[in-house]
Design a protein around this nucleic acid. Structure first.
Length: 876
RNA sequence: GCCGGGAUGGCGAAAUUGGCAGACGCAGCGGACUUAAAAUCCGCAGGGGCCAAAAGCCCUGUGGGGGUUCGAUUCCCCCUCCCGGCACCA
């Protein structure tokens, strides 16, 4: 069996690489970069100083609040977290080095369904499971070296925190901003709970169970009136120039403001009928195009419109058809392509009266009309609306032209191709309103409707009130009571917090687990002293994350959610960093909460976040990391193999932070090599013990202007690098190119090693260069930076050391290579001194052999010189 | 369908204001060191052609087509594909 030999040889070769077999480990100059050793050493030192990253309560420096979105404690960090926190940590460290008073906290969004699901699966209480996960993830964060002020840690599932959720709820209730209503709600059978509208995926499925279609149920729910702030939430988007345009646009569309008019169409009672609403009943229609009302040839109702029930009562054929339309609509919603639904409708046999001309038009029920937008009813104007046109064609309804396009030569107005939907036309066939521009017609016709008492100008929003009730255990109990005598009673402030009971049985069965805890449910009414039932629903966890960042500023306050004065100092958040998946829900709720707190007088800022940065996803092999695809990269494994610095640096290097990052294990190896190169260079060139006086000195002991060419090359590259890295921190944040720049600097240092060994580079200068190199690296690879800082004999704390200053004089090139183009094509290059005149460049270019051969026998008709960049000769 | 973001070597990417396309890194190839390998250090490297080969030279190239310009990855128009968001929104 010959293969035996081979495998033994392999074993030996492999074991030769392990630390145990290294020759004694005492080679006097072991210049290997050992991330684990270095990181263990500094990790220990950092953890022994809890004040290390603490923000100062009173500081002469300017404040800077940098925040990364707090994680849900699922049990382990993933690469997306590492990327998110590496960005934030780099910024925090950079700001410290720029003498800011930095607030950089971290916490846990620790209420939520996964804890309950885990409880059911593993029979572990949610609290225990959650706290265990927090401990694990906190250890991971510390191992990764993130500079958080842990003294401000916020854990949302602790009563110290959620009591303030309850307190805010009482305030919202007092102000009429929290209300209860019975309504159709999204019900996820898998979660056995209600979802906010915003938590339903476009395909009609639950956001946590992407394959489970959301059903509709009627339940009594608590809602927050976010719509009261719809207009301000929209308007203030203009105050957010530091937000990505993308996110602003998404929020604008989400709020979905549209201006129009409500118009009432009375039911026609002159015809024989059976089964309908009260006499005089009317159908309210919302339209943004009241100028087309003379072209309305039918009314279309959503199949779930209340009046449809009246009209269908005693009309089984209609009822059956309507039920079919409801089913079609639901199916389309669940499939997520309501926009593609094949339009169906059914005439009710009844008419409505157009209040503008008294015309009787038929009432239909149609599957493309949604009950939850506007009034659930439209006037159908086939000539001027795409959908109405399709529908009218299909069912052969009348199509009546009432808007003409404006043509340039005033008089001739051609018949437009239908449907004609442009907003800048002119009315015809519109009675007294004919001959007006659309804009004028809208104004006059709305006024007319208001005077006549059958309509009014209205603004509608797509945004809906925020349903916060959840029939779940692991959340903030809603502090309300139901008394037979006194009705709905708020828990008095002094009785807060309403503590979430522990040691209770959790099952997937519907209804709230809290309802099965009699000691929790049955209490005494604070008003009448009689028996009351406690509300058993808990709050949506988005309540927790809507204001948590305020709590960080005053995390241990037990008399208030926070001290307003402290908040005033720290807010708004200077930089918030997180995934774009939170662009709508979390970020719109947070904005709403801030505005509500401002109206309460608790805070003075209108918006919580000054600048927002949304990072791209971390993907692997072109797909999102997921268990089912088996392409998950574990941060623990990366840290164990390559070290925290390498993992962090690679997550910043592989792509610009705002773009998706395709993780490649081979890429991180290159980063590890680079860190080793830095380590070895400093190891070789750091001051020896025999030259201690230079180690502490920050003074140049050499003449900046008299450096040798090779030293000057280093100096130039250094200052170019400082400029590039510093510029990117000012907002562009392309840390991938910052790191490239630092690599280039290190490459220049390596290329200079001959000159260094020949003494052509002054020692003091070289130490100064290494010092700056380490400072440049510090935001991205803190462990190695600290190790080298110490190796360089620096006594000052690294984060207290000032960020290196860029000197434009020193960054300047002495000579420039100017490309010479002939007719836009590169034909040669000339070298000139920096700042050379155009004449000199042209002179040299014309002397250039390649240029001469390319221009021979041709005439130069134009010379374009871009100073310092390029020369283009146009020839014929 | 609408809104937003993309598409650049074998791969991740760079080019910040319209000015040398491919910096930096990965993978690859060659060399040095080594008995050998690993590690390390140095070098080559978009594609094609002329050439035995090299040097050198030429052509071509940033999803496709057109335009503006002395000059376009960058600006304009049209198209294709990918990602994200939204949607009979009246």
């Amino acid at each position: 069996m010959p293969p035996t030999d081979k495998s033994e040889a392999t074993d030996i070769a492999q074991s030769g690489r392990s630390a145990a077999n290294r020759p004694n480990g005492d080679r006097q100059s072991d210049d290997r970069y050992e991330a684990q050793r270095i990181e263990a050493k500094w990790s220990q030192r950092w953890q022994s100083d809890p004040q290390l990253y603490a923000a100062e309560p009173h500081s002469a420096n300017k404040k800077y609040y940098v925040l990364e979105m707090l994680p849900y404690p699922s049990g382990a960090l993933h690469m997306g977290h590492v990327r998110n926190y590496s960005i934030g940590d780099a910024l925090a460290r950079y700001m410290w080095m720029n003498r800011y008073n930095v607030l950089h906290p971290m916490g846990w969004d620790s209420f939520g369904l996964p804890a309950e699901n885990a409880a059911i699966q593993n029979n572990t209480p949610p609290r225990q499971w959650t706290l265990g996960n927090i401990a694990k993830m906190k250890a991971q964060m510390k191992r990764l070296g993130f500079a958080y002020d842990w003294s401000r840690e916020v854990t949302t599932c602790f009563p110290e925190y959620y009591r303030w959720n309850q307190w805010f709820f009482l305030k919202l209730y007092e102000k009429g901003l929290a209300y209860r209503k019975k309504s159709k709600v999204n019900w996820c059978p898998q979660c056995a709970t209600v979802l906010a509208n915003e938590q339903v995926l476009p395909n009609g499925c639950c956001w946590r169970h992407e394959d489970t279609p959301v059903e509709q149920r009627e339940l009594e729910q608590w809602f927050l009136r976010i719509t009261n702030y719809a207009d301000e939430l929209l308007r203030d988007l203009e105050k957010l120039p530091g937000w990505p345009e993308k996110v602003v646009t998404m929020q604008r569309n989400w709020i979905g403001r549209s201006e129009g008019a409500l118009v009432e169409f009375k039911l026609d009672y002159s015809q024989p009928h059976h089964g309908f609403g009260p006499a005089g009943a009317s159908i309210k229609v919302f339209t943004t195009r009241i100028d087309t009302i003379y072209g309305a040839t039918s009314i279309q109702l959503a199949p779930e419109h209340p009046i449809v029930n009246d009209l269908a009562a005693g009309n089984p054929a209609l009822r059956a058809k309507v039920d079919q339309l409801i089913a079609e609509q639901r199916r389309a919603k669940e499939k997520g392509d309501i926009g593609e639904i094949e339009k169906h409708g059914v005439p009710t046999g009844r008419n409505a009266i157009n209040p503008f001309n008294g015309e009787k038009i038929p009432i239909w029920v149609a599957n493309y009309i949604l009950m939850d937008y506007g009034t659930g009813a439209i006037m159908s104007v086939p000539a001027h609306d795409d959908r109405d046109y399709d529908f009218a064609k299909k069912y052969k309804l009348e199509i009546r032209l009432v808007i003409l396009p404006l043509t340039e030569g005033e008089e001739t107005m051609a018949e437009p191709v239908l449907p004609f939907t442009a907003h800048d036309g002119m009315t015809i066939n519109s009675g007294p309103f004919s001959g007006l521009s659309s804009a004028e017609a809208i104004k006059k016709m709305t006024e007319h409707a208001e005077k006549g008492g059958f309509g009014k100008a209205t603004v509608t929003y797509r945004l809906k009130d925020w349903g916060i009730s959840r029939q779940r255990y692991w959340g903030t109990p809603i502090p309300m009571l139901y008394c037979e005598k006194d009705g709905i009673v708020a828990v008095p402030e002094k009785d807060l917090p309403v503590i979430l009971p522990e040691n209770i049985e959790i099952t997937l069965a519907g209804g709230s687990p809290l309802g099965r805890v009699p000691a929790f449910v049955n209490v005494t009414c604070p008003k009448c002293g009689g028996p009351v039932r406690r509300e058993t629903d808990t709050m949506d966890t988005f309540v927790d994350s809507s204001w948590y960042f305020y709590r960080y500023t005053d995390a241990h306050n037990d008399r208030a959610p926070f001290d307003s004065k402290i908040v005033q100092y720290w807010f708004p958040i200077d930089q918030y960093i997180g995934g774009v998946e939170h662009a709508i829900l979390h970020l719109i709720y947070s904005r709403f909460w801030t505005k509500f707190m401002r109206d309460m007088g608790l805070v003075s800022n209108d918006e919580p976040v000054e600048r927002l940065f949304t990072q791209g996803m971390v993907i692997k092999d072109g797909a999102k990391m997921s268990k089912s695809l088996g392409n998950i990269v574990s941060p623990d494994e990366m840290v164990a193999r390559y070290g925290a610095d390498a993992a962090r640096l690679y997550s910043l290097f592989a792509a610009p932070p705002d773009r998706d990052l395709d993780w490649q294990d081979s890429g991180i190896e290159g980063i590890q090599r680079f860190l080793g190169r830095v380590y070895r260079f400093v190891f070789r060139n750091a001051p020896r013990n025999s030259e201690p006086e230079k180690t502490a000195s920050v003074e140049y002991t050499f003449d900046k202007k008299e450096l040798s060419p090779s030293a000057r090359a280093i100096q130039r590259k250094l200052h170019q690098t400082i400029r590039r890295v510093t510029d990117d921190f000012q907002g562009r944040w392309h840390f991938n190119t910052c790191i490239s720049a630092i690599m280039e600097l290190v490459n220049v240092l390596y290329a200079s090693e001959d000159a260094i060994s020949q003494g052509a580079v002054p020692r003091a200068f070289l130490i100064e260069v290494q010092r700056d190199l380490v400072l440049l690296l510090a935001p991205f690879a803190p462990y190695l930076a600290h190790e080298l800082w110490e190796m360089l004999g620096q006594k000052e704390a690294l984060l207290k050391a000032p960020w290196p200053k860029f000197d434009p004089e020193l960054a300047k090139e002495e000579e420039l290579e100017i490309p010479v183009q002939i007719n836009g094509k590169l034909r040669g290059k000339v070298v000139v001194p920096a700042g050379a005149t155009e004449e000199l460049v042209i002179e040299r270019a014309l002397a250039n052999e390649k240029v001469r051969s390319a221009t021979a026998s041709k005439q130069i008709i134009k010379k374009i010189y871009v100073p310092g960049k390029l020369l283009n000769l146009v020839v014929k």
